[in-house]
């Protein structure tokens, strides 16, 4: 009885089989996404007239930038690895050490400048530009990541969406430091922290839902 049911199912699936394009290895797919990040960062840098040379002159900005960039790279690799069924769940841990460094350097930069004028905040115009850069990079990078991940129809979609969110948020942080290399103010830290949390949260909620839906329907 059960065998007949399974036979029928297999016949049905085989009957609907169409050639599929094999997914490229996760590492290569991560490189494609990172190419998108480089293109976006270049556009912002040229468009907003960034001055990366300032990075070395401000406390902890260069280490924070490198840690954010490393977090984006490692989180992207982890997301694409986790989207494939036979890769370990432990890939989720890959971006955590550099993410901790990123937060630590941002915080240290802020502490180092305590007492200096302008530590507690900056002009409204400057803040608006920061927000524009963060959201302007995080949103397209998140969309690109989710679109690329959808092809794998990931089973662990919640975890994949979380790591994808970390990748996009860290990438946005790195782009901001590249375009606008200044030591984080207290207000900066708060706003960036909120933005990062929002990007990760939105990825988990909407990205997770979008990726989860790919598990429910059959391929076209």
């Amino acid at each position: 009885m059960a065998e007949t049911r399974l036979d029928d199912l297999i016949d049905g699936l085989a009957g609907r089989l169409v050639p599929v394009r094999r997914l490229r290895p996760p590492l290569l797919r991560a490189v494609f996404w990172l190419a998108g990040l480089v293109a976006l960062a270049s556009a912002f840098y040229v468009g907003l007239g960034g001055n990366a040379g300032l990075m070395g002159t401000r406390a902890y900005v260069l280490p924070a930038f490198l840690a954010a960039l490393a977090t984006a790279v490692l989180a992207a690799i982890a997301a694409f690895q986790l989207s494939v069924p036979d890769r370990s769940d432990r890939w989720v841990l890959l971006p955590l050490p550099t993410a901790a460094l990123w937060l630590a350097f941002s915080g240290l930069g802020c502490l180092a400048d305590l007492g200096v004028a302008g530590t507690w905040g900056e002009s409204f115009v400057e803040m608006r530009q920061c927000l524009l850069v963060i959201l302007g990079s995080a949103i397209p990078l998140s969309l690109l990541m989710v679109l690329m991940l959808r092809r794998a129809r990931p089973e662990r979609f919640g975890r994949v969406a979380l790591v994808a969110g970390i990748a996009s948020a860290a990438a946005a942080g790195a782009v901001l430091m590249l375009v606008h290399p200044h030591t984080s103010t207290v207000l900066d830290l708060l706003v960036h922290g909120l933005c990062v949390a929002a990007v990760i949260g939105l990825n988990v909620v909407f990205g997770g839902r979008l990726l989860g839906r790919t598990q429910e329907r059959e391929p076209a």
Partner: peptide
């Protein structure tokens, strides 16, 4: 069937 494309031979 859904994840056929993810298999790496």
């Amino acid at each position: 069937h859904r994840m056929l494309a993810t298999f790496d031979p």
